[in-house]
Design a protein around this nucleic acid. Structure first.
Length: 341
DNA sequence: CACTGTCA
DNA sequence: TGACAGTGG
């Protein structure tokens, strides 16, 4: 799933601190889905409130945004709108993966295989509309702005990096680059060790930045050609890609032939997909026009109220974290007062 | 994922 | 102090 551009990109290590005072357009669905699938108890089930409603997404957003704001990072969440119709095959495929995972989960449970059960439980995650609404409530209480994209969120996030309204776009998906994001940040989190699924080892996860211009000049191709490379590898709009063509071959073919139409050996397959429309989706996507981006004050009381009274969060934990944020923000305004006061 | 408590 | 296991909801 997703577009496998990892080995073709110029990826540079970075850290959260280098985004202080910068607006970063965050692929909201990407972030929330990650929380939903990863923040789970030992049994593999997501966290829930007294009503049995899932709260994993709220836990993730709560702590991560506290970190962002504490560091002076300005997150702007971009939510997906209606997916392009060309995406329906991919959406259908993902649904099927979830169905299969549900069966495998139940099998693992009945066999008493905990680790397997957890793995498959994660794959069953579904991001529902009410979770999106709840996430927006929490963002609003944090004073963090969010926008609704007309179609793909990544497209609008990429657009904002070009209008100068955002410094970078944050997502795990490389599609952002095809949409023209000037800078893409992956692993936009605190660095730390993560356990690999299955294996008994841990790896260090660190934020990384991919600059589109650097990547294009290192590959020696244009953005239009990168889109063609993407189509050869397989995008959400042609998930199967082309047989026996991976990132390396795709790049080679485009460099040798300039564009899809000139690659003789793929013409039969190429005519089975609407490649011109796929190009258009990446190169001229429908995006939101964003007049101004405003950050509000944090509504500390409102956050405590919502998370503890309505969503079963521990008062102690919520207050401890919010006090840490308050301290950081006060320190920041003191620093400003020293300059202007 | 991100936090907390424990133990060397 | 820092690595790791366990917990959060």
């Amino acid at each position: 799933m997703g577009l496998d551009l990892k080995q073709l990109c110029v990826r540079e290590r970075t850290n959260l601190e280098s985004f202080t005072s910068k607006i970063v357009a965050i692929d909201a669905y990407n972030a929330i889905y990650q929380f939903l699938s990863i923040i789970r108890g030992p049994d593999g089930l997501p966290l829930t409130d007294y009503n049995g409603k899932i709260t994993s997404h709220l836990s993730g957003l709560f702590y991560r945004n506290i970190n962002f704001l504490s560091l002076g990072i300005k997150p702007l969440y971009v939510f997906d709108g209606k997916p392009p119709s060309l995406k329906s095959a991919e959406i259908q495929r993902r649904k099927q993966v979830k169905k299969d995972a549900t069966i495998k989960y139940e099998k693992a449970i009945s066999e008493g295989n905990y680790a397997e059960a957890k793995k498959f439980a994660q794959q069953t995650s579904v991001l529902r509309d009410d979770m999106v609404e709840e996430s927006k409530i929490l963002l609003q209480l944090f004073g963090i702005p969010f926008i609704q994209a007309p179609s793909e969120g990544e497209a609008t996030a990429a657009h904002l990096t070009n209008t100068g309204q955002a410094h970078a776009s944050a997502s795990q998906d490389f599609d952002s680059l095809l949409f023209g994001a000037k800078r893409l940040v992956r692993n936009f989190t605190n660095s730390g060790k993560r356990k690999l699924p299955n294996r008994n080892t841990t790896i260090e996860i660190e934020p990384e930045i991919i600059t589109l211009d650097k990547t294009l000049s290192s590959l020696g191709i244009t953005r239009e050609q990168l889109v063609d490379v993407g189509i050869l590898i397989g995008t959400d709009f042609n998930p199967d890609g082309f047989e026996r063509i991976g990132p390396k071959t795709a790049l080679k073919l485009i460099k040798e032939n300039e564009k899809l139409e000139n690659i003789l050996q793929i013409q039969d397959k190429l005519n089975e997909i609407d490649y011109e429309q796929i190009r258009e989706l990446f190169l001229k996507p429908s995006v939101a026009n964003v007049p101004e981006i405003k950050f509000d004050n944090v509504d500390y009381g409102g956050i405590v109220n919502y998370l503890t009274r309505e969503r079963s969060f521990s008062l102690d934990r919520v207050e401890t974290s919010l006090n840490r944020l308050k301290k950081s923000l006060e320190k920041k305004s003191q620093n400003l007062d020293q300059w202007f006061g």
